[in-house]
Design a protein around this nucleic acid. Structure first.
Length: 357
DNA sequence: CATACGTGGGG
DNA sequence: TCCCCAAGTAT
C-alpha cells in the first residue's frame, strides 16, 4: 500500500503527459508543467457543464457560452432568458440557474475574481464538493481531493472495494486522498478522470493498456468488470400529460416560462397540464377550437417516463390567453426549448406540414 | 440518507 | 427496445 501511494500517481502522471485528451477548457500537460493554469472562469464553466454530462455533449455548449460571454462579468450581465435558452438541451437546468447566480455573486461580491480555496468555492451556488475540489486543483493547483464518478470507479477497482455506492463514497474518497499528490494536483485529477473515461470504463475496461494494471487489486482478483457495485435502482413510472400548442394568425406562438423551481424550472415551454400517473384534467390556456394530434411525445426523464398528448389550435389577434404569452415568430427559436418541448414542436410541425394550406 | 433533477449515446 | 450511464448538487 505504502508503495502504491507513490508509484500509482507517478505512473498516472506519466501516462497523462503523453495521452491527455485535447479539450477546449484544458491546459495541455506540457504547458501545465511550466506553471500555466486555466482561466478559472473557463474551468468553472466547463466543470458545471460536465456535471453528469458527457464531454461530447458539452463541447458545443462550452464554445457557444464562451463566445457569447467571454468573462464572468459578461455572463453576470446577461439576461436570464438568454442564458436559459443557450443552456436548452443540455439538461439539469438548475445548473443554468445556479450558474447565473454564481456569476453574479462573483462579479458583485468578489470583483469578478473566483475564490481560490475549496471552502471559498464550495460556498458559491451550484458548486458542490466535487466542483469545488476540481476548480481548486485545476485552476489553482491546490492539492484538493477530486472525487467524481470516474474517480470512484478507478478507486473501487484499484483497491478492490466491494461496498456498493453510494455507501462506499467516504471510503473511496479516503483512498483517492491517499493518491492525491502535493504537486501537479490539477493534472493528477484530470489524469484519473481521463483514465476512467477512456480506459477504466464502466463496461469492458481496457485493462490491457492501463498504466495502473500492476497496481490494480480488482484486475488481480478478476473483479474489475463488476466494480463499483451499486445499489439497485427503482423502476421509472409512466406519467401522462397534455400540452397546448397555439398559433396566432400573425404567426406568434403561445409559450410560458416555467416556474423557477422543479422540473425544467425557468425554461420556456408550452402551456399544459401537470404530469402525473393518471392524466390530470386538461384546462386549455385560451378559448379555441382544439384539434388532437394523432401522435404523442414520448420522453424519459431521470425518474419517470412521460407520454405527452398534444392539442393544437389557431386563434385570432383578439384572443387573450389565461396563461403564458405570445412570442413573435421572428423571436421564437426552437433551440431555446428544453428537449421534451422541442419534440412537441417538431411533432406539430411534421403533422401540420402533411396537410395542404 | 433518499429523492428530484435531463439528455444523448452505447451495448 | 430498454437499460445503463456521464467530470453532481440541492434539499
Amino acid at each position: 500500500m505504502r508503495d502504491l501511494e507513490k508509484t500509482a500517481p507517478a505512473r498516472l502522471l506519466e501516462w497523462y503527459d503523453s495521452h491527455a485528451r485535447d479539450l477546449p477548457w484544458r491546459i495541455p500537460p506540457k504547458q501545465a508543467l511550466n506553471g500555466v493554469r486555466g482561466d478559472p472562469y473557463r474551468v468553472w464553466l466547463s466543470e458545471v457543464m460536465l456535471q453528469q454530462t458527457t464531454v461530447a455533449a458539452v463541447r458545443s455548449y462550452f464554445a457557444a457560452f464562451t463566445t457569447r460571454w467571454p468573462t464572468v462579468q459578461a455572463l453576470a450581465a446577461a439576461d436570464d432568458a438568454d442564458v436559459m435558452g443557450e443552456w436548452a438541451g443540455l439538461g439539469y437546468y438548475a445548473r443554468a440557474r445556479n450558474l447565473l447566480k454564481c456569476a453574479r455573486v462573483v462579479a458583485s461580491d468578489y470583483d469578478g475574481v473566483f475564490p481560490d480555496t475549496v471552502d471559498g468555492l464550495r460556498a458559491l451556488p451550484g458548486i458542490g464538493p466535487y466542483t469545488a475540489a476540481a476548480i481548486a486543483a485545476i485552476a489553482f493547483d491546490r492539492p484538493a481531493v477530486v472525487v467524481d464518478g470516474n474517480v470512484e470507479r478507478v478507486m473501487a477497482r484499484l483497491f478492490d472495494v466491494h461496498t456498493p455506492l453510494p455507501s462506499a463514497k467516504a471510503e473511496l474518497t479516503d483512498l483517492a486522498g491517499r493518491l492525491t499528490p502535493d504537486t501537479r494536483a490539477g493534472c493528477h485529477a484530470q489524469a484519473v478522470m481521463d483514465l476512467g473515461a477512456t480506459i477504466c470504463t464502466p463496461r469492458n475496461p481496457a485493462c490491457g493498456i492501463c498504466p495502473l494494471i500492476a497496481d490494480c487489486a480488482a484486475k488481480a482478483a478478476g473483479t474489475a468488470q463488476d466494480l463499483p457495485r451499486k445499489t439497485p435502482k427503482k423502476p421509472k413510472p409512466i406519467r401522462f400529460g397534455v400540452a397546448y400548442i397555439v398559433r396566432r394568425s400573425d404567426g406568434a406562438w403561445l409559450l410560458e416560462t416555467r416556474p423557477e423551481r422543479g422540473l425544467l424550472g425557468g425554461m420556456l415551454g408550452w402551456p399544459g397540464t401537470g404530469w402525473a400517473e393518471t392524466l390530470p384534467d386538461p384546462v386549455p390556456p385560451i378559448a379555441a377550437d382544439w384539434r388532437d394530434l394523432s401522435g404523442e411525445v414520448r420522453h424519459t426523464f431521470t425518474h419517470f417516463h412521460l407520454r405527452l398528448a398534444l392539442k393544437v389550435a389557431a386563434v385570432g389577434m383578439d384572443a387573450r390567453p389565461s396563461r403564458g404569452a405570445f412570442v413573435a415568430a421572428t423571436d421564437f427559436r426552437p433551440a431555446d426549448l428544453p428537449t421534451v418541448m422541442r419534440k412537441a414542436f417538431d411533432l406539430v410541425r411534421t403533422e401540420v406540414n402533411q396537410e395542404p394550406e
